[in-house]
């Protein structure tokens, strides 16, 4: 029974992490650059939701579209300020520019909203359901549902729509895409907007159950980075699997061993995966030249 309960908690946490990692992968695929501000975007989404809640006393589900829209706008700003001026530079320049944006976000939020931890409103209700002795927070179900919906929606957009085809073409080969008439700059900006919107969703979901502080971004970007690497650099299903694996360590392994030991075990497992399966669990399609 406890194992089931832990599994449930782990899946809910993993689903939230998956949303964090997904935004990271989107930008990575579209630009080849690591967006180090992704964790701080998630934090900003959470604080935004918590700050909007007293102004708009509606359930989180109705708040979500507003947060998504505002965060998408922030994503556009991010691409304008930290990516487009550096697009022809080595990717590491974007790494640094997004670190700079992360510093601005983290401290800007502290100045505007204060350093207190905050809670965002629950998506539907804050209660718990009792399913055959299992304590199921409604929010956990909501997290899994929203994450599944957003991930599924993203797969559908990328697989079935003109926009998705253009985004994929941009991701695969920007030069070729431009030659084929794809508005690459617009697509890159759209990707940043989408990634920030995902961060907003993740922030809203995480900030209800687990609260949010202005410094929360650093831990989240680390988790996203690990999830994406474990899953195979750039693979979307891999990132989701990586996120679930991390949550499994945090919830599952730490229920057997202590939390610091579980964290250590996660890093050791990560190193083992890297040494013995350097292409990630799901493989990376990267052939060398010649």
């Amino acid at each position: 029974m406890l194992a089931l309960q832990l599994l449930l908690n782990g899946i809910a946490l993993g689903a939230a992490y998956a949303l964090v990692a997904l935004g990271f992968v989107l930008v990575l695929n579209a630009t080849g650059a690591v967006n180090f501000a992704q964790g701080d975007l998630v934090m900003a989404g959470g604080i935004l939701a918590a700050a909007l809640a007293p102004l708009l006393p509606v359930p989180g589900l109705l708040l979500l579209p507003l947060v998504l829209a505002l965060m998408a706008g922030l994503g556009l700003l991010l691409s304008l300020a930290a990516y487009l001026p550096l697009r022809h530079r080595p990717p590491v320049a974007v790494f640094i520019s997004t670190i700079a944006v992360g510093i601005m976000l983290q401290n800007g939020v502290t100045v505007l909203f204060g350093p207190e931890p905050r809670a965002a409103p629950p998506l539907l209700g804050g209660g718990t359901l009792d399913l055959a002795g299992l304590v199921v927070p409604e929010q956990s179900l909501a997290i899994v549902a929203v994450a599944a919906l957003l991930i599924g929606g993203q797969q559908w957009v990328f697989g079935r729509t003109q926009l998705g085809r253009r985004l994929r073409a941009t991701a695969q080969d920007p030069e070729m895409a431009r030659a084929c008439g794809v508005p690459v700059t617009a697509m890159v900006m759209a990707t940043f907007a989408l990634a920030a919107a995902y961060a907003g969703a993740a922030g809203l979901l995480l900030a209800n159950q687990f609260f949010v502080t202005p410094t929360a971004g650093g831990d989240l970007i680390l988790k996203a980075y690990i999830a994406v690497t474990i899953g195979g650099w750039g693979s979307v299903p891999g990132a989701v699997a990586g996120a679930l694996l991390i949550a499994l360590f945090e919830v599952g392994v730490s229920s057997v061993l202590s939390y610091p030991v579980a964290l250590g075990a996660l890093y050791v497992t990560l190193l083992a995966i890297l040494v013995f399966r350097p292409q990630g669990l799901f493989g990376e399609v990267a052939r060398r030249r010649a």
Binding site: W233, Y267, L270, L274
Partner: peptide, 22 residues
């Protein structure tokens, strides 16, 4: 870890740093 390609190497070294911190 030095055999690893760029981001994997970065993450492996980050993992080592995190273990030392722990």
């Amino acid at each position: 870890v030095l055999r690893l390609e760029s981001h994997y190497f970065a993450l492996a070294t980050l993992g080592i740093a995190q273990v030392v911190l722990l």
